[in-house]
Amino acid sequence: MSAVLVIEQVLNGLQAGVMLFLMAAGLTLIFGVMGLINLAHGSLYMVGAFAAAAVSAATGSFLLGLVSALAAAALAGAVVEMLVIRRLYASDHLDQVLATFALILIFSEGTRWLYGSFPLYLDIPAWLSGPTRLPGGILYPTYRLALIAVGLVVALGLWVLIERTRLGIRIRAGENDREMIAALGVDISRLYTLIFALGAALAGLAGALVGAIQSVQVGMGEPVLILAFVVIVIGGIGSIRGAFVGALLVGLTDTLGGIFLPELFKFFTDPATAQSVGASLASMSIYILMSLVLIWRPTGLFGARA
C-alpha cells in the first residue's frame, strides 16, 4: 500500500466528511434549538440537487444552479416550517417522526410528478473538471478539492454566525432556554423559521454540490440522512462544533475503514476471508465508532444535554 494511495484516501475521507457536515449542521441546529426530529432533512437535500440540475440545464451555469439550490431549499424549508413543523413543537417525538416521514413521501412523489422517474443530469463545470496534480505526484479530482474548500469555508462562516453575531446569540439562547428568550421579547417563531430555512439551505447546498458527482434522483437524500444522524449523535446534539468533528470522524472512518480493515485482516487470515470479513466490518465501522463514543460520553463529544 503506497503513501500516495493513503493520502488520496485521507482526502476522500475529508471530502466526504465536509459534505456530511453541511447536512449535519442543519439537522443538529434544528434538533438542538427546536427539539425537533426532522426526517425530511434528506428531502431538502434532494430539493437542492433537483433545483441545481434544472437551473443549470436551463441556463448552462453551474454557479446559478448552486444559488438556486440554496434558494429553493431555503424556501422549501421555510414553507414546510410554517405549514407543518410549527404545529409539532409541542408534540412528542413520535408525532414529529410520523409527520416528517409523511413529508419525505410527499417530497419524493411530488418531485417524481414534476421531473419524472429518471435521474437528472447535473455535471461538474468545465473549469473544475479533471484531476489536479498535488505535491508528491498525487492526482486528485479538482472538483473534490473544491468541495473540501467550500465545506471548510461554510464551517468557518457558521462558526462566525453562531459565536460572533446577534442572531447567533439568539440561537444559542434558544438552545438553552426557549421560554426565557421568548419572555425577553425575541420573536421565537420567526427565529425558528429562520433557523429551519438556514438548515434547509445548507442541506440544499450539499445536495447540489454532491449531485454533480453522483446521481440526481428521487430518494437520494435518505442514505445521507442516516449518516447525518450518526454524525450528530457522535458530535453531541445541538453542537455545531460537534457536528464538524463528528462529520470528519465519520467521513474518515468510513473511507479509511474500507481500505485498511481488509489489509489488517490479511495479517491473520487468508486473503479471501480477510477481504470479506474486513469489508463487512468496514460497513459497520461508523456504527461501532458511534457506540464507542456513546459509551465514553453518553451525550456525544460536545453535547451539553442528555
Binding site: L5, I213, I259
Partner: peptide, 30 residues
C-alpha cells in the same frame, strides 16, 4: 453506495488494464 472515490483510488493503484463493473441504477451514474 454513492461515492466511489475510495474504489477509484484502488483501481488507479492496481495496475489493471480494464475495469468491469455492475452497478445498476444511480450507483452506476455516480
Amino acid at each position: 453506495q454513492t461515492d466511489y472515490a475510495a474504489e477509484i483510488a484502488q483501481i488507479r493503484a492496481s495496475g489493471a488494464d480494464s475495469v468491469f463493473f455492475f452497478l445498476p441504477g444511480g450507483m452506476g451514474i455516480s
